[in-house]
């Protein structure tokens, strides 16, 4: 037991160290806007929630589901989060879709730090949440939970989660940002179900 625990502690200690280093350089922001006008604030938050720009950043098999979510069949653009950007400077949503290992962890922290605030993080899948199948005694290089290195807003369980789950995660994040579940009025389903029969 002793030796394996030591190894896990090493991974954890490594993650903690990264987090500490990152926190030191971070500027605390309260999420406050320049003007504290209530209506402006509300409008801006609704806009932010409906225009999340995720980073094109896939780490493992969850990324395949993330790609599927972006494609026409599931179509994440229905909720305004389709603008996947290849540069962290242009993003405000980091979807950690997969396993974060020790070698990757500094890169993840760098990407997070490069994103301009306000920014949000979704931990997608069991690996990003808690290490998933890698959270075993013998684990020597998987960070058990990405929240050990960067703050996470929404957790989406699943191995991997289905695209619907990712959409639900996006909706939850919108809820967190704007305070209501559908900050933008949604189209109502037709009352007569015959109409949408495919």
């Amino acid at each position: 037991m002793g030796e394996e625990n030591k190894i896990i502690k090493q991974v954890d200690a490594f993650a903690c160290q990264l987090r500490e280093e990152s926190d030191q350089g971070a500027i605390e922001h309260e999420g406050a806007l320049l003007s504290q006008l209530l209506l402006t604030d509300k409008v801006l938050k609704v806009c932010q929630a409906n225009s999340l720009w995720p980073l094109t950043f896939g780490l493992a098999c969850c990324a395949i589901e993330m790609m599927a979510t972006g494609m026409a069949r599931i179509d994440i653009s229905r909720y305004g989060a389709e603008v996947f950007r290849p540069s962290a400077r242009q993003c405000d949503l980091l979807i950690i879709s997969g396993t974060v290992n020790k070698k990757m962890a500094p890169a993840v922290v760098t990407l997070y730090e490069q994103m301009p605030a306000p920014k949000w993080v979704i931990a997608m899948g069991n690996c990003a949440i808690s290490g998933g199948p890698f959270a075993v005694e013998e684990n020597y290089n998987v960070i058990e939970g990405v929240d050990k290195i960067i703050p996470v807003d929404v957790y989406i369980p699943g191995c991997p989660p289905r695209p619907e789950a990712l959409i639900e995660g996006i909706l939850k994040l919108q809820e967190k940002i704007a305070g209501v579940r559908h900050p933008w009025p949604q189209r109502k389903m037709p009352e007569n179900p015959e109409v949408i029969k495919i």
Binding site: E3, I7, F14, K102, K103, E138, Y140, N141
Partner: peptide, 16 residues
């Protein structure tokens, strides 16, 4: 090659 530089002495697949 695969491990990070800090782990160059780890040798994770050695048996107990």
């Amino acid at each position: 090659l695969l491990l990070c530089d800090e782990d160059s002495d780890l040798k994770p697949l050695l048996k107990k």
